[in-house]
Design a protein around this nucleic acid. Structure first.
Length: 218
DNA sequence: AAGGCAATCAACCGCGACTGA
DNA sequence: ATCAGTCGCGGTTGATTGCCT
């Protein structure tokens, strides 16, 4: 059972907001507040918009404390640092949590900034590849450093953990990278697992990972 | 000048979580 | 305990802008 639609999509305006709509929404919220109900707000404010759209517009653009413009180096560092800590522990990145550490920035801002700028910035630096085979074996290559590690599954390594990071660290020939591996993108969603060892499926050709050390951001 | 392409970012979508009746 | 309504989130899309040829 999915959620009930929040509005009649045939009767709401979509797409970019006009200055008039911005003014109407801003004026209404500043005068009356949201009333704890975004769904009924557009009607009261005289807007032909979906309540969710109003909420997003207010939170991401119209709020008085929103900071517009480019990110500072300090903000870059905070985002990278938090992403590193989260990315190695879970598949879903909590953009709202990262944004909460950056006054005036929204989760949408941070997410966009990461996807368009920071991710590429890191890729241009120390890039690595993570390859798996059909038996659960894998290799780890750091192109920038010109170093590669890996192993094949055999009778003695079958008991390694499912989680690729744990498996990597469990293997005697591999360095213990622990928090410094971050799973950023994969060719198959199923190739990404959480650090608890759940859900990793090694049926993909290659999982791209970034491995970098904390001191890069210190 | 114009067309193609890539980058950017505002906005939308879908779904799980939460809350109150 | 259940259910409907709403919120809030991450992921994705698409319009716009700017650059390059």
């Amino acid at each position: 059972m999915g959620s009930a639609p929040c509005c009649d999509k045939t009767n709401v305006k979509r797409g970019p907001w006009s200055p008039e709509e911005d003014a109407a929404l801003k004026s209404y919220v500043q005068t009356h507040g949201t009333g704890g109900n975004w769904i009924s707000l557009p009607l009261k404010a005289g807007l032909k918009r979906c309540g969710k759209s109003c909420r997003l517009r207010w939170l991401n653009y119209l709020r008085p404390d929103i900071k517009h413009g480019g990110f500072t180096q300090e903000e870059d560092d905070i985002i990278c640092s938090l992403y590193t800590q989260m990315g190695s522990r879970q598949v879903v990145v909590l953009w709202s949590l990262i944004a909460s550490q950056l006054p005036g920035r929204t989760d949408n801002d941070v997410k966009n900034y990461w996807n368009t700028k920071l991710k590429k910035k890191l890729l241009a630096g120390k890039t690595t590849s993570f390859n798996t085979d059909n038996n659960g074996g894998f290799s780890f290559t750091d192109a920038a450093a010109g170093v590669g590690y890996g192993f094949s599954v055999n009778s003695t390594s079958q008991s390694l953990p499912l989680d690729p990071v744990m498996r990597f660290n469990s293997h005697p020939s591999c360095p213990n990278l622990d928090n410094n591996i971050v799973f950023v993108a994969s060719q198959e969603e199923s190739a990404v697992s959480d650090s608890a060892g759940n859900g990793y499926v090694g049926d993909t050709d290659c999982v791209l990972v970034y491995a970098y050390h904390q001191q890069q951001f210190s």
